[in-house]
Structure formats: C-alpha cells, structure tokens
C-alpha cells in the first residue's frame, strides 16, 4: 500500500507526524490527569508510524522500526505489565498490588500505574504496527 505521495502530502506529513508522536507521548504520560492512557497513546503512536509507512513507503518505515524490533516490543509490553505484578508479589503484596512498591502508598500507586500504562502503550502500539506491516507485506 503506497500512496505514491505527492510533494504536498509528503511535506505536510513531515510536519504532522512529529506532532502526532508528541501527542501520543502526552496522552501516554498525562492519562492520570486527563482523558487517555496507554491504549489510546499506543494507537496514536502506531497511527503516526502507519501514516509514515503509507506516505514514504513501508520499507522506509521498516528501516527505522524493523519488524523484528516491533515483535520484541509486543512481548516486552506484556512482560513489563506482568513484571510489575510479579514484583509486587516478590515484595510481599498481592499480584498487581502497587502499594508495596514504594513507601508512600500514593507514590507507589503512581509508579505502578505509570509502569503498567507504559506496558499497555508499548504492546498496543507495536501490535497495530505489526499487523499493518504483515497485511502490507501479504498484499505484495
């Protein structure tokens, strides 16, 4: 799927894609205060990568984010999430009971939520990118 993009489309995307990625990071790390979180941030980040792949060609996107790396990150997100759960168990709490992570229970909750939202964001984003890569390669 290559749009054989016109000059205008390519130049507009050059401006838009960094902004979309920045917005994804904002949604990821601001989800505790406003709407959003890992799911939405992952999807927005994937949308930026997919837009890049559509406009400049998948091969160019894969030079920056190779399929191998994307696949490792799919598992890494789930592992980070489960890892937080295992860590809380090793520290003597229940599975995913963040209160044992740090001294103050609110700080501990912040840390736990930050980490698992990061795990969600990584997995969701890379899953979308991987599915897009796979569909695009299959169509060739």
């Amino acid at each position: 799927m290559n749009l054989r993009a016109s000059l205008i489309l390519r130049e507009v995307c050059r401006l838009v894609i960094p902004a979309v990625m920045l917005f994804a990071l904002y949604v990821q790390f601001h989800g505790e205060y406003g709407p959003g979180g890992g799911f939405q941030a992952g999807v927005i980040f994937a949308a930026a990568v997919i837009l890049y792949a559509l406009v400049y060609g998948r091969q160019k996107a894969q030079r920056i984010l190779p399929t191998e790396t994307v696949r490792y990150f799919i598992a890494a997100g789930v592992l980070l999430y489960t890892g937080v759960g295992v860590a809380t168990m090793l520290l003597g709490g229940n599975f995913l009971d963040y209160n044992v992570l740090l001294q103050g229970h609110q700080q501990a909750q912040h840390l736990g939520i930050f980490l698992i939202e990061l795990g969600v964001g990584i997995t969701v984003g890379t899953v979308m990118i991987a599915i897009f890569y796979t569909l695009d390669e299959f169509g060739e």
């Binding site: 505790e32 205060y33 963040y98 909750q109 939520i113 698992i116």
Partner: peptide, 16 residues
C-alpha cells in the same frame, strides 16, 4: 490512588 482521572485509577489499579 491519588490521581485526578478516576477512569485511569479504576482501569490501571482497582481493575489492573
């Protein structure tokens, strides 16, 4: 939990 967005605290902590 100590965060303003209750949706996030339910999603990520109470219902983690």
């Amino acid at each position: 939990i100590g965060i303003p967005n209750v949706v996030t605290s339910v999603l990520a902590s109470y219902r983690g």
